[in-house]
Design a protein around this nucleic acid. Sequence first.
DNA 1: CCCGTGATTTAT
DNA 2: TAAATCACGGGG
Length: 206
Amino acid sequence: MTLSTANARLDRGFYRREPIRVARSLLGQRLVRVEDGARRAGIIVETEAYLGIPDKAAHTYNGRRTDRNASMWDDGGHAYVYFTYGMHYCMNVVAGRAEQPVAVLLRALEPVEGLVLMWPLRARARVERDLCSGPAKLCQAFGIDRALDGNDLVGGDALFIERVRSRALPASRIVASPRIGIGYAAEWVDRPLRFHIRDNPHVSVT
DNA sequence: CCCGTGATTTAT
DNA sequence: TAAATCACGGGG
């Protein structure tokens, strides 16, 4: 028997679009990590779009291409995981097509499965809200590091995104605002490229 | 407010 | 080769 599309993953076509559309459409979908046969999952509640070569806040600004950001040049639907501040990982979903280095940073999740596996990885967390309310927090909680950089979210088994809703949330439920932590990006600082679900308590900053 | 921490990037 | 930077988190 077929349970229709209940646990269907987002397909390649979902990711091969403009990063702003991908960023908005990811809100409400479910990020899943499978490790040793166990699932951890969270609903995506906050994202940021990075527009690539012209975007002064993007790691690929001006066509920069290095070992670190190589996966951002991959086809849509891959993971770009980078290391920063000497201790933190952050995860992006690559958008667009190969050689088009645009991506969406996952900034916050509402954890919904496998929380028992997250608590020990988030030693300072006291309430559920502390588990995944930031880009490096969610990587800690989900055990995401450079080993998952370049992972194919469409065909891979360790990290992928399940379709919860077939349409993007209505605009009235999405708040757009400037991106966080990119004060160096000149005229790009104020562009409203951060998106979050209105009134969701798991968002990183309000 | 400040700091940890180290890879990456930029300046000399 | 050296210095500055950093899509952050935690503590005061």
